[in-house]
């Protein structure tokens, strides 16, 4: 059984549901989910900031949970569902979190924004009425160098209020 496994193990077919659409690709097994999304499927909204799980720019939702896509091998995600920033907008309408980021000046250079928005979206999914501290905790893995997080936190709290209204 062990020897049988050997010949096919450098490459593998990976099937992912990305933003609701099925994507299939033959990938080298050492490819990260981040590189597969960016290079193969052109979801370049998922950013490369540090490649070591420190900055959160590559955050995507894997089966709804935020993860650093730079730390996950694409083969490990096989069969699972991925939401990237490109998948939040529905029928030409921004997600309430995206809308709040735009309207509250929470975006400057924008490089952290996709990851930041996805972390915030996931927070509101599991906790629709977070406290400021809970917002800060949820985005602590998304580094931003432009904003000091002030307007980002404002935007997430506003999105929470907006969703309830």
């Amino acid at each position: 059984m062990v020897t049988e496994a050997k010949p096919k193990t450098k490459r593998q077919i990976v099937t992912l549901t990305i933003n609701g659409d099925e994507h299939v690709s033959l990938v080298k097994v050492n490819t990260t989910l981040l590189d597969l999304l960016r290079e193969e499927f052109d979801y370049t909204g998922t950013k490369k900031g540090c490649e070591l799980g420190d900055c959160g720019a590559c955050t995507v939702l894997l089966d709804g949970e935020p993860v650093n896509s730079c730390l996950i091998l694409a083969v490990e995600a096989d069969g699972r569902s991925v939401t990237t920033i490109e998948g939040l907008e529905k029928n030409g309408k921004l997600d309430v979190v995206q809308e709040a980021f735009v309207n509250h000046g929470a975006i400057q250079c924008g490089y952290c924004s996709p990851g930041m928005i996805l972390s915030s979206r996931a927070l509101l999914n599991r906790n629709p009425s977070p406290t400021e501290r809970e917002v800060r905790d949820a985005i602590a893995g998304n580094l931003c160098r432009c904003t000091g997080y002030v307007k980002i936190v404002e935007a997430v709290l506003a999105a929470s209020a907006e969703s309830k209204a």
Binding site: Q98, E99, I107, G110, P114
Partner: peptide, 12 residues
């Protein structure tokens, strides 16, 4: 709002 905010918020 910033002219580029929409593109940055959507990953475009």
């Amino acid at each position: 709002p910033k002219v580029d905010a929409y593109d940055k918020a959507t990953g475009r």
